[in-house]
Amino acid sequence: MSGNGNAAATAEENSPKMRVIRVGTRKSQLARIQTDSVVATLKASYPGLQFEIIAMSTTGDKILDTALSKIGEKSLFTKELEHALEKNEVDLVVHSLKDLPTVLPPGFTIGAICKRENPHDAVVFHPKFVGKTLETLPEKSVVGTSSLRRAAQLQRKFPHLEFRSIRGNLNTRLRKLDEQQEFSAIILATAGLQRMGWHNRVGQILHPEECMYAVGQGALGVEVRAKDQDILDLVGVLHDPETLLRCIAERAFLRHLEGGCSVPVAVHTAMKDGQLYLTGGVWSLDGSDSIQETMQATIHVPAQHEDGPEDDPQLVGITARNIPRGPQLAAQNLGISLANLLLSKGAKNILDVARQLNDAH
């Protein structure tokens, strides 16, 4: 009898209710805020589980004197976190989706994509230029951005401005803007500013005609071990179906173009009346040469937790077992079709030249 009692006690200790789920994140304040929001949602869904947040620095956090596009290494903000995932030191990792490459290392998958916040870019102005827009900034004003995508589009749109690289986390960039006289304004992701509670610093939100956004911008991705079915089931509740389908289309477009950090590629997606609209573009580094096109596809946005595919093969690095396969494939095909259209119009040449120029500098 006593033996059975011990077995029952052991089973209770090993039951999922007692389990601590370890969540990996970057150390920056924004990353911690984003991770806290994901953990809060998981806690609400699984009140019996405990969650421990483990923060670590990544290569991208450490190399702050070089433009991201020049470092010449993929997975700048993800490699150390993936290493911890691989060694079973954490069970899942919360990322900004735009930091996750469209091809993940073997053994990993994006197990959830959370509801997207505003994906557009924002302009934050130096205190002396508050009330201005990019259009009304004085001639030769210097605007800071760490992104080739932003610089290429904005140089084309605002030729009277000069664009220079600015690195560091959000706090560091804002301090550089406010305390030094080098920059009249800087460009940042609206979602990051909003998550930090800095709505009052948003001086201008850039519309798609001015600057399309990065693939996955404004959404959070939760990376897990691809074979860890328990954790895949656990994080599945975080999937937002519309965000998922938009981001599958965007990531398929980028992957098929073979774009990345070192080339200016941008997108804009919208879901309306059962249609998914995808606009994508590529630019030369100075913005003088560009190709942009829009395509659409009829896609039914499923309700969360309709029964999805059981075999769960990944699409552009994403596993969404609780979302039907048909809409996911339709979104992926839309991204591939748009990429093929741009490639047929000469996108590869623009991107190759951009890559060579970026590598040469």
Rank of each mutant, 00 (worst) to 15 (best):
D121Y: 03
R173G: 03
H256N: 06
Q356F: 03
A226T: 08
R156E: 11
I291Q: 12
Q194L: 10
D65L: 04
L329V: 15
H268S: 04
G111F: 03
Q34S: 10
A84P: 07
L137Q: 05
T172P: 04
T145I: 04
K157G: 12
L68N: 06
K43G: 09
Y213K: 02
V316Q: 02
S344R: 15
I33R: 10
R149P: 02
A266K: 07
D289N: 05
E80C: 11
A252C: 00
L278E: 02
G335P: 01
I323D: 07
E306I: 11
E80G: 08
A270S: 07
K98E: 00
R32I: 14
L245W: 10
I187N: 05
T102R: 12
R173S: 02
D65E: 15
K87S: 13
D307W: 15
R195D: 01
G259Y: 05
I350E: 00
H95P: 01
V94L: 08
K98A: 04
D352K: 09
A226L: 08
E209F: 15
S28F: 00
A219D: 00
V93A: 12
N118C: 13
R173P: 01
T25Y: 01
C261Q: 03
H239K: 06
D65W: 08
H268E: 15
S37E: 11
D286C: 07
A226Q: 11
K27F: 12
D286L: 08
A185T: 14
S262M: 00
L170H: 09
K115F: 10
T279I: 13
T66Q: 06
V224W: 03
R167C: 04
V90R: 01
A214F: 05
V224Y: 03
S165D: 03
V202T: 14
T190N: 15
E179T: 11
F51R: 02
I231N: 08
A44C: 06
E250L: 02
Q217P: 07
T133I: 09
S75P: 12
R225Y: 08
T78E: 02
Q314M: 01
L285P: 14
D289A: 13
N169H: 12
P159F: 09
T78Y: 06
Y213I: 03
F163E: 07
L232M: 12
V38T: 12
N340P: 01
L30F: 00
L285K: 08
P106G: 09
I71R: 05
D233C: 11
G259H: 00
K348L: 14
Q314R: 03
K98L: 02
G131N: 09
T279N: 13
A320Y: 00
H207P: 11
I166K: 04
T172H: 07
S57T: 08
V93C: 08
E52S: 11
E89K: 10
E73W: 04
L193F: 05
S45F: 06
I205E: 14
E73M: 08
F253S: 03
G274T: 00
P101W: 01
K128Y: 09
I63V: 08
S75C: 15
A320N: 00
D61T: 02
F158C: 12
Q332Y: 14
S262I: 12
R321W: 02
K62T: 01
I63Y: 05
F163I: 13
T35C: 08
N88F: 12
I350G: 00
A303Q: 02
G168V: 03
P313K: 09
N333H: 15
I21Q: 00
Q181P: 06
D121T: 02
L42R: 01
S147A: 00
L334Y: 05
Q332T: 13
S75G: 12
A152N: 07
M56E: 12
P105W: 08
L343I: 03
L244T: 14
K62E: 04
K98R: 02
N171F: 04
R19T: 10
Q153E: 05
R173N: 03
S69D: 09
D99I: 00
L92M: 12
C114F: 08
T319Y: 15
G326Y: 12
G197N: 04
I205F: 01
L234Y: 01
E242Y: 00
T35K: 00
D312K: 00
D312N: 15
F108V: 09
I205W: 00
G346F: 06
S45T: 13
R149I: 05
T59M: 12
V301K: 03
A67I: 15
V282Q: 04
L137P: 02
K132T: 10
Q155A: 14
Y277G: 04
D230W: 13
G317W: 12
T41Q: 09
P302Q: 05
M271A: 03
H160L: 10
L341S: 05
K62Y: 12
A339G: 15
A55Q: 10
T58I: 04
D65I: 08
T294S: 14
T109D: 00
E306L: 14
S141Q: 11
P324F: 02
V282R: 01
L154W: 06
I323S: 10
H126F: 08
V316K: 01
H256Y: 08
P101T: 12
A40F: 07
G335M: 04
T190H: 15
S262A: 15
L338W: 01
R164S: 11
F108T: 14
V123K: 01
S69G: 09
N200K: 14
V90A: 06
Q292S: 14
D178Y: 13
L137S: 06
P208C: 03
F125P: 12
V23I: 04
F108Q: 15
M212C: 03
G111K: 04
L188P: 04
Q50L: 12
L206T: 05
L177C: 06
G308D: 13
K74L: 07
Q34F: 04
G274K: 08
N200T: 13
E89I: 13
A249N: 00
I186C: 09
R164T: 12
Q292A: 08
G168Q: 02
T279D: 04
M196I: 13
A320W: 14
I187K: 01
S184T: 14
T136W: 13
G72A: 10
Q181N: 06
S337I: 11
H268F: 13
K128W: 10
E73C: 07
G280F: 02
S147F: 02
L134Q: 01
G280P: 01
L244P: 04
N322A: 00
Q296A: 01
G107M: 14
Q296N: 12
K43I: 12
G287T: 01
N171T: 12
R195G: 05
G48N: 15
S165C: 12
A330G: 09
V353Q: 15
P313W: 02
L341H: 06
H300Q: 11
G218N: 00
E306C: 04
P309G: 15
L100A: 03
F253D: 02
E135P: 11
G259W: 03
P241C: 14
L285A: 13
A354T: 14
P106D: 12
F51N: 05
I110H: 04
I350A: 06
D91T: 03
F158Y: 13
T294H: 15
V222Y: 02
I21N: 03
K98D: 00
V38I: 14
P119K: 04
T172M: 05
A67Q: 08
D311M: 14
P309V: 15
V353C: 02
K132H: 10
L188N: 06
A40Q: 07
K227E: 15
A44E: 12
G281S: 15
L174M: 14
V130G: 06
R167K: 06
I21C: 05
D121F: 01
L42P: 02
L134G: 04
D99A: 04
R255M: 12
W198D: 08
P47Q: 11
K348Q: 09
G308T: 08
S146I: 09
T41A: 10
L206G: 06
R164D: 12
F125H: 04
G259D: 11
V90T: 07
K176V: 11
R325S: 09
T35H: 00
I63L: 13
A297L: 05
A354I: 00
Q153L: 07
T41C: 10
